[in-house]
Protein backbone atom coordinates (compact mmCIF):
# COMPACT_ATOMS: atom_id res chain seq x y z
CA UNK A 1 0.00 0.00 0.00
CA UNK A 2 2.53 2.53 -1.09
CA UNK A 3 1.39 5.98 -1.83
CA UNK A 4 4.70 7.50 -2.58
CA UNK A 5 7.19 5.00 -3.84
CA UNK A 6 6.36 5.44 -7.48
CA UNK A 7 5.33 9.03 -7.63
CA UNK A 8 7.89 10.11 -10.16
CA UNK A 9 8.23 9.25 -13.81
CA UNK A 10 4.76 9.72 -15.17
CA UNK A 11 3.85 7.17 -17.78
CA UNK A 12 3.10 8.23 -21.29
CA UNK A 13 0.11 6.93 -23.16
CA UNK A 14 2.45 4.81 -25.16
CA UNK A 15 3.65 3.19 -21.94
CA UNK A 16 0.16 2.45 -20.86
CA UNK A 17 -1.01 0.57 -23.88
CA UNK A 18 2.36 -0.55 -25.08
CA UNK A 19 2.06 -4.25 -24.60
CA UNK A 20 -1.58 -4.76 -25.43
CA UNK A 21 -1.96 -4.30 -29.18
CA UNK A 22 1.04 -6.39 -30.03
CA UNK A 23 0.18 -9.24 -27.70
CA UNK A 24 -3.56 -9.24 -28.07
CA UNK A 25 -3.94 -8.99 -31.83
CA UNK A 26 -4.93 -5.36 -31.71
CA UNK A 27 -7.19 -5.64 -28.68
CA UNK A 28 -6.64 -4.30 -25.17
CA UNK A 29 -7.19 -6.11 -21.92
CA UNK A 30 -9.82 -3.50 -21.17
CA UNK A 31 -11.77 -4.43 -24.31
CA UNK A 32 -11.51 -8.06 -23.40
CA UNK A 33 -12.89 -7.36 -19.91
CA UNK A 34 -15.86 -5.59 -21.45
CA UNK A 35 -16.31 -8.49 -23.84
CA UNK A 36 -16.42 -10.86 -20.87
CA UNK A 37 -18.78 -8.59 -18.93
CA UNK A 38 -21.12 -8.63 -21.91
CA UNK A 39 -21.10 -12.43 -21.92
CA UNK A 40 -18.94 -12.55 -25.10
CA UNK A 41 -21.85 -11.14 -27.03
CA UNK A 42 -22.22 -9.99 -29.70
CA UNK A 43 -19.54 -12.41 -30.79
CA UNK A 44 -16.38 -10.75 -32.04
CA UNK A 45 -14.58 -12.98 -34.52
CA UNK A 46 -11.30 -11.12 -34.19
CA UNK A 47 -11.30 -11.92 -30.47
CA UNK A 48 -12.71 -15.41 -30.71
CA UNK A 49 -10.20 -16.45 -33.35
CA UNK A 50 -7.16 -14.96 -31.63
CA UNK A 51 -5.21 -17.45 -29.51
CA UNK A 52 -3.59 -14.68 -27.49
CA UNK A 53 -6.97 -13.11 -26.80
CA UNK A 54 -8.31 -16.47 -25.72
CA UNK A 55 -5.42 -16.90 -23.30
CA UNK A 56 -6.03 -13.41 -21.92
CA UNK A 57 -9.76 -14.10 -21.58
CA UNK A 58 -9.03 -17.27 -19.67
CA UNK A 59 -6.73 -15.33 -17.37
CA UNK A 60 -9.34 -12.64 -16.84
CA UNK A 61 -11.99 -15.20 -16.00
CA UNK A 62 -9.62 -16.85 -13.59
CA UNK A 63 -8.93 -13.50 -11.96
CA UNK A 64 -12.65 -12.79 -11.63
CA UNK A 65 -13.16 -16.09 -9.91
CA UNK A 66 -10.25 -15.37 -7.60
CA UNK A 67 -11.41 -11.88 -6.64
CA UNK A 68 -13.59 -12.96 -3.76
CA UNK A 69 -11.32 -15.71 -2.46
CA UNK A 70 -8.47 -13.21 -2.54
CA UNK A 71 -10.06 -11.23 0.24
CA UNK A 72 -10.96 -14.40 2.13
CA UNK A 73 -7.40 -15.60 1.84
CA UNK A 74 -6.09 -12.32 3.17
CA UNK A 75 -8.62 -12.36 6.02
CA UNK A 76 -7.54 -15.85 7.00
CA UNK A 77 -3.99 -14.64 7.57
CA UNK A 78 -5.10 -11.79 9.81
CA UNK A 79 -5.01 -12.14 13.57
CA UNK A 80 -8.36 -12.97 15.16
CA UNK A 81 -10.77 -10.19 15.94
CA UNK A 82 -9.91 -8.42 19.11
CA UNK A 83 -12.48 -9.26 21.79
CA UNK A 84 -12.70 -5.70 23.07
CA UNK A 85 -13.25 -4.57 19.49
CA UNK A 86 -16.21 -6.93 19.12
CA UNK A 87 -17.50 -5.90 22.54
CA UNK A 88 -17.18 -2.26 21.54
CA UNK A 89 -19.50 -2.79 18.60
CA UNK A 90 -22.04 -4.71 20.63
CA UNK A 91 -21.92 -2.04 23.27
CA UNK A 92 -22.76 0.66 20.78
CA UNK A 93 -25.77 -0.91 19.13
CA UNK A 94 -29.16 0.19 20.29
CA UNK A 95 -31.25 -2.61 21.77
CA UNK A 96 -34.19 -0.25 22.17
CA UNK A 97 -34.62 -0.06 18.42
CA UNK A 98 -35.98 -3.62 18.45
CA UNK A 99 -38.56 -3.17 21.24
CA UNK A 100 -41.52 -3.28 18.85
CA UNK A 101 -45.10 -2.97 20.08
CA UNK A 102 -46.15 -2.86 23.69
CA UNK A 103 -48.08 -5.93 24.77
CA UNK A 104 -50.36 -5.34 27.77
CA UNK A 105 -50.26 -7.45 30.92
CA UNK A 106 -53.67 -7.54 32.58
CA UNK A 107 -54.33 -6.39 36.13
CA UNK A 108 -57.67 -5.72 37.89
CA UNK A 109 -56.45 -2.38 39.24
CA UNK A 110 -57.06 0.42 36.71
CA UNK A 111 -54.03 2.30 38.03
CA UNK A 112 -51.83 -0.51 36.74
CA UNK A 113 -50.32 0.00 33.29
CA UNK A 114 -48.39 -3.20 32.81
CA UNK A 115 -46.79 -4.45 29.64
CA UNK A 116 -44.12 -6.54 27.95
CA UNK A 117 -42.34 -5.41 24.80
CA UNK A 118 -42.85 -7.32 21.58
CA UNK A 119 -39.09 -7.70 21.35
CA UNK A 120 -39.10 -9.53 24.67
CA UNK A 121 -41.78 -11.91 23.42
CA UNK A 122 -39.77 -12.60 20.27
CA UNK A 123 -36.85 -13.33 22.57
CA UNK A 124 -39.03 -15.89 24.36
CA UNK A 125 -39.87 -17.55 21.06
CA UNK A 126 -36.13 -17.79 20.28
CA UNK A 127 -35.46 -19.18 23.73
CA UNK A 128 -38.14 -21.82 23.11
CA UNK A 129 -36.48 -22.67 19.80
CA UNK A 130 -33.08 -22.93 21.40
CA UNK A 131 -34.44 -25.66 23.66
CA UNK A 132 -35.45 -27.80 20.68
CA UNK A 133 -32.65 -30.07 19.50
CA UNK A 134 -31.86 -30.08 15.81
CA UNK A 135 -33.52 -26.79 15.04
CA UNK A 136 -32.55 -23.12 14.87
CA UNK A 137 -35.13 -20.39 15.03
CA UNK A 138 -34.67 -17.32 12.84
CA UNK A 139 -37.12 -14.52 12.26
CA UNK A 140 -40.31 -14.47 14.33
CA UNK A 141 -43.50 -12.46 13.80
CA UNK A 142 -46.49 -11.84 16.00
CA UNK A 143 -49.49 -11.52 13.70
CA UNK A 144 -52.56 -9.93 15.22
CA UNK A 145 -53.38 -6.98 17.43
CA UNK A 146 -51.07 -7.67 20.35
CA UNK A 147 -51.99 -4.37 21.96
CA UNK A 148 -55.57 -5.55 22.63
CA UNK A 149 -55.77 -7.98 25.54
CA UNK A 150 -57.31 -11.29 24.50
CA UNK A 151 -56.97 -10.71 20.75
CA UNK A 152 -55.96 -13.90 18.94
CA UNK A 153 -52.31 -13.90 17.95
CA UNK A 154 -50.58 -16.13 15.45
CA UNK A 155 -46.85 -16.69 15.84
CA UNK A 156 -44.94 -17.10 12.57
CA UNK A 157 -41.43 -18.48 12.83
CA UNK A 158 -38.68 -19.15 10.28
CA UNK A 159 -36.46 -22.03 11.21
CA UNK A 160 -33.47 -23.97 10.01
CA UNK A 161 -33.46 -27.72 10.41
CA UNK A 162 -30.39 -29.68 11.40
CA UNK A 163 -29.25 -32.18 8.82
CA UNK A 164 -30.89 -35.55 9.59
CA UNK A 165 -33.60 -34.17 11.86
CA UNK A 166 -37.22 -34.96 11.03
CA UNK A 167 -38.97 -31.73 10.13
CA UNK A 168 -42.52 -32.61 11.32
CA UNK A 169 -41.07 -33.94 14.54
CA UNK A 170 -38.95 -30.90 15.27
CA UNK A 171 -41.76 -28.57 14.22
CA UNK A 172 -44.11 -30.25 16.69
CA UNK A 173 -41.61 -29.91 19.49
CA UNK A 174 -40.98 -26.28 18.58
CA UNK A 175 -44.69 -25.51 18.45
CA UNK A 176 -45.14 -27.07 21.87
CA UNK A 177 -42.15 -25.20 23.31
CA UNK A 178 -43.43 -21.87 21.95
CA UNK A 179 -46.95 -22.42 23.33
CA UNK A 180 -45.46 -23.42 26.65
CA UNK A 181 -43.13 -20.47 27.05
CA UNK A 182 -45.69 -17.88 25.92
CA UNK A 183 -48.40 -19.22 28.20
CA UNK A 184 -45.97 -19.16 31.08
CA UNK A 185 -44.66 -15.65 30.51
CA UNK A 186 -47.41 -13.66 28.76
CA UNK A 187 -51.19 -13.11 28.72
CA UNK A 188 -51.31 -13.57 24.94
CA UNK A 189 -54.05 -15.66 23.37
CA UNK A 190 -52.16 -17.83 20.93
CA UNK A 191 -54.36 -18.86 18.01
CA UNK A 192 -51.62 -20.74 16.22
CA UNK A 193 -47.93 -21.19 15.59
CA UNK A 194 -46.84 -21.27 11.94
CA UNK A 195 -43.41 -22.69 11.37
CA UNK A 196 -41.61 -22.30 8.07
CA UNK A 197 -38.53 -24.45 7.71
CA UNK A 198 -36.59 -22.85 4.89
CA UNK A 199 -33.01 -23.64 5.75
CA UNK A 200 -30.80 -26.58 6.58
CA UNK A 201 -27.71 -26.50 8.76
CA UNK A 202 -25.12 -28.96 9.90
CA UNK A 203 -25.85 -29.41 13.58
CA UNK A 204 -22.65 -31.34 14.24
CA UNK A 205 -21.12 -28.49 16.14
CA UNK A 206 -24.29 -27.50 17.97
CA UNK A 207 -23.71 -27.00 21.66
CA UNK A 208 -19.98 -27.43 21.35
CA UNK A 209 -19.62 -23.74 20.52
CA UNK A 210 -16.44 -22.24 19.20
Amino acid sequence: MNDSQNDSEPATDADRTRRDPAELDGHTLDELSDYLDAGRAPADASIDSSPSCQIALTSLERLYRLSDTLLEAQASTEPDLDESWVAGILHNISRDSRAGRTIPVTHPDPAAELAITEGTVRGLVRAAGDMVEGLLVGRCRLDGDVTTPGAPITISVDASIGWGTSIPDAADRLREAIYGILIRHTDLTIAGVDITVDDVHNPAAKGSSR
Binding site: V86, L90, R95, G119, G138, R139, D158, D198
Partner: peptide
Amino acid sequence: PIDLTVASDRILVGRAVDGDVRAFEALVR
Protein backbone atom coordinates in the same frame (compact mmCIF):
# COMPACT_ATOMS: atom_id res chain seq x y z
CA PRO B 1 -25.89 -20.89 24.74
CA ILE B 2 -26.66 -22.62 21.48
CA ASP B 3 -24.02 -22.58 18.82
CA LEU B 4 -24.98 -19.93 16.33
CA THR B 5 -21.86 -20.46 14.23
CA VAL B 6 -23.68 -23.27 12.39
CA ALA B 7 -26.59 -21.00 11.51
CA SER B 8 -27.01 -19.62 8.01
CA ASP B 9 -26.84 -15.91 7.33
CA ARG B 10 -30.60 -15.88 6.85
CA ILE B 11 -31.20 -17.26 10.31
CA LEU B 12 -28.70 -14.93 11.94
CA VAL B 13 -30.11 -11.90 10.16
CA GLY B 14 -33.66 -12.90 11.11
CA ARG B 15 -32.67 -13.20 14.74
CA ALA B 16 -30.68 -9.98 14.74
CA VAL B 17 -33.60 -8.13 13.15
CA ASP B 18 -35.71 -9.39 16.02
CA GLY B 19 -33.20 -8.04 18.51
CA ASP B 20 -30.91 -11.00 19.17
CA VAL B 21 -27.56 -9.43 19.95
CA ARG B 22 -25.82 -12.82 19.99
CA ALA B 23 -26.92 -13.47 16.42
CA PHE B 24 -25.55 -10.11 15.40
CA GLU B 25 -22.33 -10.92 17.22
CA ALA B 26 -22.12 -14.15 15.21
CA LEU B 27 -22.42 -12.10 12.02
CA VAL B 28 -19.75 -9.69 13.24
CA ARG B 29 -17.43 -12.61 13.91
